[in-house]
Computed example of a mutant assay.
Amino acid sequence: MTSDLIGVRQRADELSGANGVVKGPLKGYHHETYVLSLPGETRIVKLREPRDRILWFDRRCFHSEEELLRALHGRVSRIPDVYDAEGMALQVFIEGRTLKPRPWEDKRVSPVVLDQIVGLFEELARITQDTLDVGRRCEPEDRAENGDCDGFLERLIVFVEDQVYKDNHLRFGRLFEDLGIGEEAFDHLRKNVSGLTERDFFLLHADLHRENFVLDPLNQLWTIDWELAMVGDPLYDLATHLYLMSYPADQKRRMAEEWFRVVHGVRPESTRGWEEDLERLIDFKKAQSVFTDIIRVSLSLRDGSGFNWVRLPAAVRKLQAVMTAAARPLGLTEVPSRSRIASALVR
């Protein structure tokens, strides 16, 4: 355990007091997270800090997730409370289980859960930039104008191009080249996803996957991890959700239709051109995954100073799958064979 992580654990122990219980670290890529009880309190909170030298693959909009959560209370149902302890803003821990299916289950979610996700989309449609007083990371000139969905998507593409691909080219450039992916892939991507209809912007969670939903013992669905929230094209939130959830075809179709129904009821200008543009935005998510997964998979195979041969077959299957899914938007003439992918990863 590094000295920084020891520091996080030490702070958790100090906050919980002599008789407190600290659990962790919890599984997570970006943060070192502990769950603890506070002296004299019944609530359980999370203490977390960003891990050192972690690569961020997503554009972030707001300065503080906790500040955003405070602003959303009373406007979005079932999100974590924020508790102040010794000058720190801590999120209350939501007890329950995520929507990640067990190995023997399929990826279908219950109608009760589906309805609650639809309700979340309806609440988000009511929250626009001018009604949300929360500090932003990006400068005004680096934000797309309301309705400029092409401009919004271009900023996401630039982030992947500059801060995922180019910034990591020194370490991973050879791997990208061996897999047949070069800078021209971004030209193909822009050609395949541009020309979006203008839609009015509102607040997006932007990371609505199964492990960011927690179902409590009363079957109430809570939405956690708002760190990637942003203001932008509302259809991007739906596309990201559908891509990450991997619904069965009938539930994917129902979720899209229900999204249109509730968002159109609140803000009709935010649903213009949604049927034509949805697959384009899903194509962007497929393409984005190629760049992020190549790096993450490569890192996952490093076991101390050696190479984790046991993980290699699953890593190869994953990369071939994501590259196959993104072949058209990235303009890939062929997807590398499994032996070629394996050789590239080993090199």
Rank of each mutant, 00 (worst) to 15 (best):
S3Q: 08
V8H: 09
E14H: 11
E14P: 02
V22K: 05
K27V: 07
K27N: 05
S37P: 00
I44L: 12
V45I: 12
D52F: 01
W56G: 00
E65Q: 14
E66W: 01
E67K: 13
V76Y: 04
V82E: 02
E86P: 10
Q91T: 15
F93V: 12
I94W: 11
E95T: 08
T98I: 13
T98S: 15
L99I: 13
K100G: 00
V113Q: 06
D115A: 15
L124T: 15
L124H: 14
C138W: 03
P140M: 08
P140S: 07
P140D: 09
D142G: 01
F152Y: 15
E154H: 11
R155C: 04
H169A: 14
F176K: 02
E184R: 15
F186N: 14
G195N: 05
L196G: 02
E198Q: 07
R199L: 02
F202G: 02
L204Q: 08
L218M: 12
E227R: 12
E227T: 14
D237K: 04
D237G: 04
L238S: 09
T240D: 09
H241R: 08
L242V: 04
L244M: 08
Y247E: 12
R253M: 14
W259C: 12
R261A: 07
H264V: 10
T271S: 11
E276P: 00
R280G: 00
I282W: 11
F284R: 01
K286T: 06
S289D: 13
L299Q: 09
N308M: 03
L312C: 08
A314N: 06
A321R: 14
M323F: 02
